[in-house]
Amino acid sequence: MIGIGNLLYLSLSVIGPCNYCASTSMILCWAGMEIGFIATIPLLSGYASTYSLSKESVLKYFCIQAFSSAIIFLGGVILYETYSEYWSMWLALAGLMIKLGVWPGHFWVPGVASGISEFPLFIMLVVLKVAPIALLINIADFMELGMHLVVLGVITATTGALMGLNSAQFNQMLACSSITHMGWMCVGILLGGIWVYFLCYSVALGFLLYFKCRGNTQMAALVLLSFSGLPPFLMFVGKWVLLSMMVTTSVHLVVILSLLISAFLSLSFYLMFSYGCYLDSSSQPVWWLLRLAGSF
């Protein structure tokens, strides 16, 4: 059950991104992101089954997000004090890379995700990404990043796929999957279609965490296959939109092949965890992880 306090925090975590979308000032946009960030801190520890691990994850999340917010705020101060748009935008871009878990600011995502439960994990990987993605779109248009953002997206997608191959815990796998999908979204920022991809990812992740929380492992295994982008699953729509835009805009073949290779690498650990979920008859993830580790 969601208590009154948790309902208040959840409302604030949703109001924060909405405040960003309705604001025209950089200070108000930054404040909107911070409202959602502060409201999520109690949610991260409120639903945890292992309290000590939850406190460690909350501390990691707080330090990383506070550091990235300080970098973004410093960029705004430089913009207003010295009118140096170049350095202020690069500082804001660096802070957003850390907030969104884009390479090289991806290091914190698996460590934080491994210590929290399903509901705050959805808030962290979906709801709190709306405002930073919108700000990244504006910065990318202003700075004309072009191939810089594409290169970051390819490296991020490949890094997340390689990290996912070494994942032994379900939440860590979802964190590595989030890093991989953020790489695709970086490419989508340049080409368009990012919100279609983000919507498909949000719906798929929401259903996966819901079925996992309810103990319906067979449906969770089926939804988990959707993240691979295979037809006729939902994520196929998002990846097909981006791939079609890459072809029509004559993106270099190396970029397309790199993203497809990262998708194939991700498919291997999706199949591994989906196989374990499907064979699991209990609601305790420890047993199917042990059986799965012994079968390879």
Rank of each mutant, 00 (worst) to 15 (best):
M1D: 10
G3S: 05
G5K: 08
L7E: 07
L8A: 11
L12I: 05
S13D: 03
V14A: 05
G16D: 04
N19F: 13
N19G: 13
Y20T: 02
S23R: 00
S25K: 01
I27P: 01
L28R: 06
C29D: 01
G32L: 00
I35P: 06
G36T: 07
F37N: 03
A39H: 04
P42K: 10
P42Y: 06
L43W: 01
L43K: 04
S45L: 13
S57A: 11
V58S: 07
K60S: 01
A66Y: 04
S69V: 02
S69I: 03
F73V: 14
L74W: 11
L74K: 01
G75P: 03
Y80A: 10
Y83C: 13
W90N: 03
G95I: 01
G95K: 04
L96M: 14
M97Y: 09
M97G: 09
I98V: 06
I98R: 00
K99G: 01
L100V: 04
P104Y: 05
G105A: 00
G105M: 00
W108G: 07
G111T: 09
S114T: 11
E118C: 10
L125I: 04
V126M: 05
V127I: 15
V130D: 06
A131V: 05
A131I: 06
A131F: 08
P132G: 08
N138I: 11
I139K: 10
G146N: 03
M147E: 15
G153I: 02
T156W: 00
A157C: 08
T159A: 12
A161P: 05
F170L: 15
N171W: 03
A175Y: 02
C176M: 11
S177K: 10
S178I: 03
I179M: 08
H181M: 11
M182R: 01
M185R: 09
M185A: 13
M185C: 09
I189Q: 02
W195D: 06
Y197L: 15
Y197Q: 04
S202H: 09
S202W: 10
A204P: 02
L205N: 03
A220V: 01
A220M: 12
G229Q: 05
P231C: 13
P231Y: 08
F233A: 09
G238A: 07
K239N: 11
K239P: 09
L243V: 10
S244N: 12
M245T: 14
V251G: 11
H252R: 09
L253F: 14
L253R: 12
L253V: 13
L259E: 05
L259S: 01
L260D: 02
A263N: 02
A263H: 07
F264Y: 11
Y275T: 07
C277A: 13
Y278A: 12
L279H: 14
L279E: 04
S283H: 11
Q284W: 13
P285V: 11
L289W: 07
L289E: 12
L289P: 01
L292A: 06
S295C: 13
S295L: 15
S295K: 14
